[in-house]
Design a protein around this nucleic acid. Structure first.
Ligand SMILES: [Mn+2]
Ligand SMILES: [Mn+2]
Ligand SMILES: [Mn+2]
Ligand SMILES: [Mn+2]
Lengths: 221, 221
DNA sequence: TTATAAATTTAAGTATACTTAACTTAATTA
DNA sequence: TAATTAAGTTAAGTATACTTAAATTTATAA
């Protein structure tokens, strides 16, 4: 049975692989879930016994088909809730992640499908992450890079942002740098790795840290 | 701290007192929550230690001011969710109770206030139960009686129904007997305690069991 | 009033999901 | 290669919320 904890472990293992390209290790999952390494080892054994991950001691873990199915359902619920809270209740896109983090575990398939329908079966959540479909497929995502890797004088579109830092997104709201905004990389400073961009006729310098949370896609001219 | 279990205990103790007029006993709470009497005894001790109920062994339990505050918050969340699911997503009033039963424990004050605002600060949920206000007050409710106690030839309004039996409400939907419907008691049969009512130009016989789930208020002519 | 029945509490044990501390394995580096 | 460090696992223990079975208290009725 997939308890709340197990759902979170599976989701985390899935996201880790998606974001990094490599299998999740004990330490990484522990860090993500803010629990001890020991807790991961114990749970890894259980998830493995239940056929939800394949796990060899000391060698990291990987979702099985069944594990991935559950992970995708949790992520689907999470992202649909986020978009729903924004669209139906006008809640800020910086505030919905933490709500969704809890609601994702307490939503029947019946209810999430109603929400999906209400939203017109959307492909992306408010932070630009793809919403897994009811059938388990994932909408095609554009090829993105971090703003920190963007090249000077090139034009990009802001298409995704890490959704866990409410303060960060709150800053984006304040400077009116919203998803789907077009931007040009005006300058890159080597001594602090800050990036100066222009968008909506404004110019703005972004710190190294900030540019590592912002994903953009190249715009062909 | 109020865990999910504790929230449910407090809510149940509150509702029991509201519905019956007398303090909850171990057995009644156990029945309502579908757990053993032993579980109630244990939890009663903890809730008492935390100052949420006053409890004397073998003598039943009663909410303290603090306990009632928490109970009202849980009930507020429950009933606002129910109405929201009906109004915003068009979910049937027979299907929202079980969803709310889980969501009520995973909703921040921020979110529930947004939902409250969306709904225009409503006084009653889809089953006619009052929705506790943010400040802890409860909207004034009409004086209601069970349909089983209604008198022949009198006119009533259907104002409340027990919300836990989805099948029962589903039947009401099928016969188009909705909340706020005006009805006349046409007949009461003594041999089976069934009640025949007329509403919307239709006539219908209701079993003893059904009339004990339906609350009406007298309509003055 | 005393026996019996009903209600309730206590005791002992289970499952889940954590913790810290100790130990083991793997990777790094001198 | 051997020592050191990092990563991961195991062991022991905690908290919550249940269970069943035994013991106790209270209520009821002969
Ligand atoms: Mn999110
Ligand atoms: Mn979660
Ligand atoms: Mn309800
Ligand atoms: Mn509940």
């Amino acid at each position: 049975m997939a308890t709340i904890s197990k759902e979170n472990y599976l989701k985390t293992i899935f996201n880790y692989k998606t974001n990094s390209g490599v299998n999740a290790t004990t330490a990484k999952v522990a860090q993500d879930l803010s629990v001890s390494n020991a807790a991961i080892s114990e749970m890894a054994k259980k998830l493995s016994d239940e056929g939800l991950i394949s796990y060899k001691k000391y060698k990291g873990m990987e979702l099985t088909t069944n594990g991935e199915k559950i992970a995708l359902k949790v992520i689907r619920r999470h992202r649909l809730w986020e978009l729903f809270l924004v669209k139906a209740l006008g809640i800020g896109w910086n505030e919905v992640h933490s709500e969704a983090e809890r609601l994702e575990h307490h939503t029947s398939e019946f209810l999430i499908d109603k929400i999906d329908e209400y939203l017109g079966f959307p492909d992306f959540d408010p932070h630009g992450h793809p919403i897994p479909k009811k059938n388990g497929t994932i909408p095609k995502t554009p090829k993105v890079i971090l703003l920190s890797e963007a090249e000077k004088n090139n034009v990009y579109e802001f298409v995704r942002v890490d959704d866990r830092d409410s303060e960060l997104i709150n800053y984006l709201i304040r400077i009116e740098f919203l998803l789907n905004t077009e931007l040009t990389v005006v300058d890159k400073l080597s001594f602090d790795n800050s990036v100066t961009i222009s968008f909506n006729k404004k110019s703005l310098s972004m710190s190294k840290e900030l540019t590592k949370s912002i994903y953009v896609k190249a715009v062909k001219n």
